[in-house]
């Protein structure tokens, strides 16, 4: 099952491309949105890599990363609104 490795590598590559926007985004909102996209893409890469290597533990990590990404986005949003 080698094709899954290639797909996961492509997703990681796209995550690295999103890092460009994290680095140069003019406002903090651009950086936050791009960082959320990086989190989602690494999440997908983890799912594919878990299927490739046959270890369920990566899927637990993917679920926890998804929850943490959501929480951190909501925290950034509340901070920008001035309600934190």
């Amino acid at each position: 099952m080698t094709e899954l490795t290639v797909f996961a590598a492509i997703y990681v590559l796209l995550a690295l491309l999103c890092m460009i926007r994290v680095a140069k985004g003019p406002s903090v909102v651009d950086r936050a949105v791009a960082a959320d996209s990086v989190e989602i893409l690494t999440d997908v890469a983890l799912v594919l890599f878990a299927l490739e290597s046959g270890r369920g533990i990566y899927l637990d990590i993917a679920l926890v990363t998804a929850i943490l990404g959501f929480m951190s986005m909501v925290c950034v949003a509340r901070y920008l609104e001035g309600r934190l």
Partner: peptide, 19 residues
């Protein structure tokens, strides 16, 4: 993972747009 992201991602998008 799919179920959680379909429930949570729109909330994050809405809150960051409003903020």
């Amino acid at each position: 993972i799919g179920l959680f992201s379909i429930l949570a991602n729109p909330i994050a998008g809405h809150s960051i747009a409003k903020a």
